[in-house]
């Protein structure tokens, strides 16, 4: 692809992302903020699956970031953007501690173990009113402080402002994850996933890299949680329950996890289906139904996810002519 074409593509995408909230209704703008944050969640989830492990505790890690950031801002008075970073760091550290027991397991046992660990954390939030606020959680979390950029006055109660802010953070996160995947570390992740014994024989500590993937992915999930907490101003244990986890799992699987863009496609398509289509025809409660059927349908008929569909289409359009690692 010629350089200028790439530049035009990047500029067009940037313009589209900037213009997007202005063509939407107010409630759709809110959904857009959530979707942006969810993209970070689902992409960080994929980072973990690069080493071959599937967790059911990822959304709880998001919650750890949300709770930590909320508490730091509210009880300690930490400047909100800094609290968010510390929230992400807390999630990463909690993941590091959890990796000690969890990575004695693999496959299904890791899945169940991560669920148990996540539920324990969630129940601790529920049980201990101080400092976690019990079942009702934490309310009136400090919002992002407003500031004036000259060309745009950021008032973060407004979804458009928060969308720009979240977009910036999420893109930065995605960029780092993308770089990691394309770096030699990403190569080692792939090696650990597909031939763990051959990787060991090459001197790679499989456990160390599984831990690295878990810590990184949890850190980004925590960042996403912090973004969410300071936007809606409240966190509670139910926001991070297994139902949310299943939604993340659905985005990832329906989109496909072999490529970087697969989970993003899954998240965007399902959010649009859910929020635009279902809400318009008044079938919002049908969400689990649609998600469930899509999940079954994907596993049965499109095992590589929507990305595969895009991939086939792109062969005609040469849209993504370069095949990413781990693609079919």
């Amino acid at each position: 692809m010629p350089r200028w074409l790439v530049a035009v593509g990047v500029l067009a995408t940037a313009a589209l992302l900037l213009a997007l909230p202005h063509v939407l209704s107010f409630s759709q703008r809110e959904v857009l903020v959530f979707m942006t944050i969810n993209i970070l969640v689902v992409c960080s989830y994929r980072l973990l699956t690069l080493t071959g492990e599937w967790s059911l505790g990822h959304v709880v890690m998001m919650g750890v970031g949300a709770y930590a950031s909320a508490l730091l801002a509210k009880k300690v008075g930490v400047f909100v953007p800094l609290a968010m970073l510390l929230g992400a760091f807390t999630a990463a550290m909690v993941a590091l501690v959890l990796s000690v027991p969890l990575f004695r397991m693999k496959g299904f046992y890791f899945l169940i173990g991560s669920f148990a660990a996540g539920e324990i954390i969630r129940l601790l939030w529920k049980r201990f009113r101080d400092p976690f606020g019990g079942p009702k959680g934490i309310k009136r979390i400090d919002p992002m402080p407003d500031f004036d950029l000259g060309i745009w006055n950021f008032t973060f109660f407004d979804p458009v402002s928060y969308y720009y802010f979240a977009l910036l953070v999420v893109l930065a996160g995605l960029f780092v994850m993308w770089r990691v995947e394309k770096s030699p570390i990403g190569l080692v992740f792939h090696a650990v996933h597909w031939q763990d014994n051959l990787a060991r024989s090459a001197g790679i500590s499989v456990r160390a890299y599984r831990t690295l993937a878990l810590v990184l992915s949890s850190g980004f999930a925590g960042l996403a949680g912090a973004l969410l907490a300071h936007y809606i101003g409240t966190v509670n244990p139910n926001m991070f329950d297994i139902e949310q986890m299943v939604y993340v799992l659905t985005w990832a699987i329906v989109g496909g996890t072999a490529t970087f863009y697969g989970p993003i496609i899954g998240c965007v398509v399902l959010t649009v289906v859910n929020e635009i289509v279902l809400r318009e025809i008044g079938l919002e409660q049908g969400r689990p139904m649609i998600y469930g059927m899509l999940l079954i349908g994907t596993v049965l008929f499109l095992p590589k996810g929507l990305e595969d569909l895009f991939h086939r289409l792109s062969r005609i359009g040469l849209l993504f002519s370069r095949q990413p690692r781990g693609g079919q």
Binding site: H190, Q195, N197, L198, R200, S201, A202, G203, S205, V206
Partner: peptide, 23 residues
Amino acid sequence: PMHRIARRGLVRTFQHSTLFAEL
């Protein structure tokens, strides 16, 4: 563990051409 032994200079191959097939 295998990776420690490998780091001391003893490396093995596997039967059936075990490789990273997608790399």
